[in-house]
Structure formats: C-alpha cells, structure tokens
Lab assay of single mutants.
Amino acid sequence: MEVRTIKVFTTVDNINLHTQVVDMSMTYGQQFGPTYLDGADVTKIKPHNSHEGKTFYVLPNDDTLRVEAFEYYHTTDPSFLGRYMSALNHTKKWKYPQVNGLTSIKWADNNCYLATALLTLQQIELKFNPPALQDAYYRARAGEAANFCALILAYCNKTVGELGDVRETMSYLFQHANLDSCKRVLNVVCKTCGQQQTTLKGVEAVMYMGTLSYEQFKKGVQIPCTCGKQATKYLVQQESPFVMMSAPPAQYELKHGTFTCASEYTGNYQCGHYKHITSKETLYCIDGALLTKSSEYKGPITDVFYKENSYTTTIK
C-alpha cells in the first residue's frame, strides 16, 4: 500500500517557510505537534488534498525554529505562539472599519479597549522592536488589523473576551517599542525636605499616572512627601515624541487643539466601556464603527496623549 502524501510549508514567522512532505494517514499533531492554519487549530486533523502548498504555523520545537521565533517575536515564552494563534482565530472574524481616516474595530468580545489602543497607536510616533509587531502594525494602518490585535493580546497575556485596560495595554506595548531616546527629568520640591531631581528613561519617561493635564504637570502637581507634608512635583525636561497622561476616570474637559487623542471610560472596574476622542479640525468621538463630532467635550476621561518633541522648564 502506497503512502499518500502532500507537500506543505511549516513556519513560526510566515517569513521562513520549511518544506514538509506530510503523510495523509496521520494527523498534523502526530507529525508536527500543535499546528495552526489561519489561526485555526488543526492539530487533530489529517492532511487533505486542499492543504497542498498551504502554510501551517507550528510551535518552535527545534533550534532553527526557536531562533526564527525569537528573532521575529522577541520572546522565548513557549506558550506565546499558541496564544497568538488562538487569538487570531477570533480577531480574523472582527470587522476593521476605516473611521475618520483611522483603522478602528467594530465592537465584539469586549474589544473596546483594543480599538482605543489601536486608534491611539496610529496617532503617536512609535516604532516597535519585534519585527512581528512592526509588520502587523503597518498592515493594521492599511486596514488589516487582525494579526496586530492578536499579537497585542498575546504580548499582554490576554484572551479574547476578557476586559482590558488601555493604560495597561499601552504599557505592555511600550515595553516592546523603541523608547531608548526618551528621557524625563522631574523635580520634587518640599518646604521641609528641599528639592530632589529624578531622571527617568524609556517607558517611565512617557507615562504618568495622577493627572490628565500635561500643562498642569509642567506647572506642578501636589504629591505627598515622605515627611508627610505636601510637596510639588513638576516637569523639568521632556525628550520624547509623545507623552501619555493618565488618571482614574473623572469628568474632564478636553479643549480642541490642546491634545492629540484621549480615552474615555464609562462604567466601573468590573464592567465598563471605552471610547476614543481625537482632536482634528474639530473633536471626534470614535466608538467602534461609530463616529460623532463636537466642538467641545466633557466626560469621564482616563488617558490623554500629547505630541511632544523637546521641553525644558522655565521655572527657576
């Protein structure tokens, strides 16, 4: 009895394709271990004539594949690729409408935090270190965002349907971005203890939790000093293409032309909904596939993004 075979390709990165001759009487799992086709788990399936010449994702289970996976995804987590594939199996079914010149995501599976993050990423200057993220990001900007969303979920250790947080998501993504040249110098002034300067680099240099107003941050924000008295913390120097200011959701007025974009969060910790506000020729609110415009805006804002380049204080 002759062994019926077909020729397929296996890959971990969709760049390096490895030619395989597979036995049609055995499952993919018996031949390769966990195997995925377009995100779908085909591990328990036997090869079919229609699979001839198709590319299958496999887990990096030998040295060659491990090197290829690390170079593309910059992670050695053995569960990463499987999590990416199972997320992709959902995100490829989502709709990605162009809204006001940006790629958004039609609401499904509690994905409003991903839509808000995706919209924000198209408006701030950011370059990702893992080629996987950078490639998928370019495709997302062009309207094909399924891979990018699935990668975000995998890097953030999230599953489809789980509630997510924009600030946490951005923080994970910033860790995989090139923020080497970003720098922030802060000064804390206390009447009792004097003053202390701190220099922050990388992710810490672009994120701040405690106030939404970048102007206020430049002037000074009140913080408790270690001595128990009130101290003032203010920005001395900022070198970065953008800054992200966050605070627990509270009524906040966004003035046209003073910011790049913002995240609105309605609801409580267990259950809520994100919308995205962007400042173009007027203010726009993007909620999944829905767009509304207004000249002014007041609502429960939790993150505001500002364009920056270089700032030095005039406070002496």
Rank of each mutant, 00 (worst) to 15 (best):
E2P: 12
E2L: 10
V3K: 10
V3E: 09
R4F: 13
R4P: 12
T5K: 15
T5R: 13
I6D: 03
I6S: 04
K7R: 11
V8H: 01
V12G: 07
V12M: 15
V12A: 02
N14V: 04
I15L: 15
N16M: 01
T19R: 11
Q20F: 10
V21K: 15
V21N: 10
V21H: 07
V22Q: 00
M24G: 15
M24V: 13
M24T: 09
M24Q: 02
M24Y: 06
S25L: 14
M26G: 13
M26A: 10
T27Q: 10
T27M: 15
Y28D: 04
G29M: 05
Q31L: 11
F32C: 13
Y36W: 11
L37N: 11
D38Y: 10
D38L: 13
G39Y: 06
G39R: 02
G39F: 07
G39S: 11
A40F: 14
D41S: 10
D41Q: 10
V42R: 02
V42E: 03
T43W: 02
K44P: 11
K44E: 09
H48D: 12
H48N: 11
N49F: 14
N49M: 05
N49R: 08
N49C: 14
S50T: 11
H51C: 02
H51A: 02
G53L: 14
G53F: 11
T55F: 03
T55D: 01
Y57W: 13
P60Q: 04
N61V: 10
D62A: 06
D63P: 14
D63L: 07
D63V: 09
T64Y: 06
T64P: 09
R66P: 09
R66N: 06
R66H: 12
V67S: 14
V67C: 11
E68S: 08
Y72I: 08
Y72A: 13
Y73D: 03
Y73L: 01
T75Q: 11
T75S: 00
T75H: 05
P78H: 08
S79V: 13
S79M: 12
F80V: 01
L81M: 12
R83G: 02
M85L: 14
M85V: 06
S86Q: 12
L88E: 00
L88M: 04
L88C: 10
L88A: 00
N89T: 09
N89L: 13
T91W: 04
T91D: 00
K92W: 04
K93P: 02
W94S: 02
W94Q: 00
W94F: 04
W94Y: 06
W94T: 01
K95R: 12
Y96R: 03
P97T: 12
Q98F: 09
Q98C: 12
L102V: 07
L102P: 08
T103G: 02
S104A: 05
S104Q: 04
I105F: 02
I105L: 06
K106F: 14
W107E: 11
D109Y: 00
N110L: 00
C112W: 03
C112S: 14
C112L: 02
Y113V: 03
L114D: 09
A115V: 01
A115I: 00
A115H: 01
T116K: 00
A117N: 03
A117F: 09
L119G: 07
L121A: 15
Q122R: 01
Q123S: 04
I124L: 12
K127E: 12
K127P: 05
F128M: 03
F128G: 01
N129C: 12
P130T: 14
P130F: 01
P130Q: 03
P131Q: 09
A132M: 06
Q134P: 02
Q134H: 05
Y137K: 00
R139V: 15
R139T: 07
A140S: 08
R141Y: 06
A142C: 15
G143N: 00
E144H: 15
A145H: 01
A145Q: 02
A146M: 04
A146T: 01
N147T: 09
C149G: 01
A150N: 01
L151K: 01
Y155I: 01
N157G: 13
K158E: 00
V160D: 00
V160E: 01
V160W: 03
V160A: 08
G161H: 03
G161N: 05
G161Q: 01
E162T: 15
E162L: 04
R167K: 09
R167N: 06
R167S: 12
E168D: 13
T169W: 03
M170G: 00
S171C: 14
S171A: 13
L173M: 15
Q175Y: 05
H176P: 01
H176R: 10
N178K: 09
L179Q: 05
L179N: 00
S181I: 09
C182Q: 04
R184Q: 07
R184A: 15
V185P: 02
L186I: 14
V188S: 14
V189R: 09
V189W: 09
V189M: 12
C190E: 04
C190Q: 04
K191G: 08
K191T: 11
K191V: 09
T192A: 08
C193S: 05
C193W: 04
G194A: 07
Q195M: 15
Q195E: 15
Q196A: 11
Q196G: 07
Q197P: 08
Q197G: 09
T198L: 13
T199A: 09
T199Y: 09
K201W: 15
G202Y: 02
G202K: 03
V203C: 10
V203G: 12
E204S: 06
E204F: 06
A205N: 05
V206H: 04
V206S: 02
M207G: 01
M207F: 13
M207E: 07
Y208E: 14
M209S: 15
G210W: 05
G210N: 06
T211G: 07
T211Y: 03
L212Y: 06
L212C: 04
L212W: 02
Y214Q: 08
F217I: 12
K218E: 09
K219I: 09
V221I: 08
V221S: 06
I223Q: 09
I223C: 08
I223R: 06
C225L: 02
C225K: 04
C225E: 02
T226Q: 13
T226V: 15
C227Q: 06
C227V: 04
C227A: 05
G228K: 05
K229I: 11
Q230W: 10
A231S: 09
K233V: 14
K233G: 13
Y234W: 10
L235K: 03
L235M: 01
L235T: 03
V236K: 11
Q237L: 13
Q238W: 00
E239L: 08
E239R: 12
S240A: 12
V243M: 07
V243D: 08
M245A: 08
S246Y: 04
P248L: 12
P248R: 14
P249Q: 06
P249D: 06
A250H: 12
A250V: 13
Y252R: 03
Y252D: 03
E253Q: 07
L254W: 03
L254P: 05
H256I: 15
F259C: 00
F259S: 10
C261S: 02
A262D: 06
A262K: 05
S263K: 04
E264G: 15
E264Y: 01
Y265L: 13
Y265N: 06
T266D: 12
T266P: 09
G267M: 09
Y269R: 15
Y269V: 06
Q270P: 15
Q270H: 13
Q270K: 13
G272K: 07
H273E: 08
H273L: 02
H273M: 04
Y274M: 02
K275E: 04
T278P: 02
T278M: 15
T278L: 13
S279D: 12
S279R: 08
S279M: 05
K280G: 10
K280R: 10
E281Q: 06
L283R: 07
Y284L: 13
Y284P: 04
I286G: 05
D287N: 07
D287L: 00
L290Q: 14
L291H: 07
K293S: 13
K293R: 12
K293M: 11
S294I: 14
S295I: 13
E296C: 12
E296N: 13
E296A: 13
E296L: 13
Y297P: 07
K298H: 14
K298R: 14
K298A: 15
G299E: 06
I301Q: 05
I301W: 03
T302W: 05
V304G: 05
V304D: 05
V304M: 08
V304T: 05
F305P: 08
F305N: 04
Y306H: 04
K307N: 14
K307D: 11
S310Y: 11
Y311T: 07
Y311I: 09
T312P: 14
T313R: 14
T313W: 10
K316W: 14
K316D: 12
